[in-house]
């Protein structure tokens, strides 16, 4: 058991080191992308948008691994990632948030969570009347989702979030990767 835990610790440290290198060197990140496999599509879903933005309700979805400190952290022990999500209430203070994500360097986002989850900025856009409303809840995933977890994301967790946002009568969703 101890040996297994050591292996997991080593792999997590390796993931964090690779993340720092990919974040630090954009050219290395581009090479990594080029040699990685992604699901490919030939078309996109489409919802026509011709509303008055100043009357719209907006929600955020991030894959930056953001969550409340009181919530269960994303699973860093599974090499295939974690397809679950966390719901973040709109009145959450940045000090109550943390990031669990070993696949990008979040040192800067730890200093200011708005660079991956711009919750304070969208509230300011509401105050200035540029958007109509900020939804009462937002959603966060951990963007490292591979192998069998992709099916769970596509068939279960992403549609669950989409349905929740639809039931909240959200008109605009801004998504931020990390």
């Amino acid at each position: 058991m101890k040996e297994r835990n050591n292996k997991i610790d080593f792999r997590e440290k390796k993931d964090q080191l690779i993340a720092k290198l990919l974040s630090k060197y954009p050219s290395l990140f581009r090479k990594w992308v080029h040699h990685s496999k992604f699901i490919e599509f030939s078309d996109s879903p489409w919802t026509q948008f011709d509303s008055d933005i100043s009357k719209c309700r907006l929600a955020l979805v991030t894959t930056g691994g953001v969550h409340l400190m009181s919530q269960k952290p994303f699973n860093m022990k599974d090499p295939a990632g974690d397809p679950t999500f966390r719901e973040i209430p709109v009145d959450t203070l940045p000090a109550d948030l943390t990031i669990t994500h070993n696949y990008y360097d979040h040192a800067d986002a730890d200093k200011d969570v708005n660079i991956v989850f711009p919750i304070e900025r969208v509230k300011e856009l509401k105050q200035s009347g540029e958007i109509g409303d900020v939804n009462y809840r937002h959603f966060s995933f951990m963007g490292h989702i591979m192998h069998h977890h992709i099916k769970t994301l596509m068939k279960e967790t992403a549609p669950q979030v989409a349905a929740a946002l639809k039931s909240d009568k959200v008109n605009i969703v801004i998504l931020t990767p990390a």
Binding site: V61, T63, A158, A162, I172, I174, L175
Partner: peptide, 17 residues
């Protein structure tokens, strides 16, 4: 993240990332 965006757009909400 694009997969999540596609699901939200398919549900009838305009998205941008």
């Amino acid at each position: 993240m694009g997969l999540i965006q596609r699901a939200v757009e398919a549900a009838g909400i305009a998205t941008i990332s």
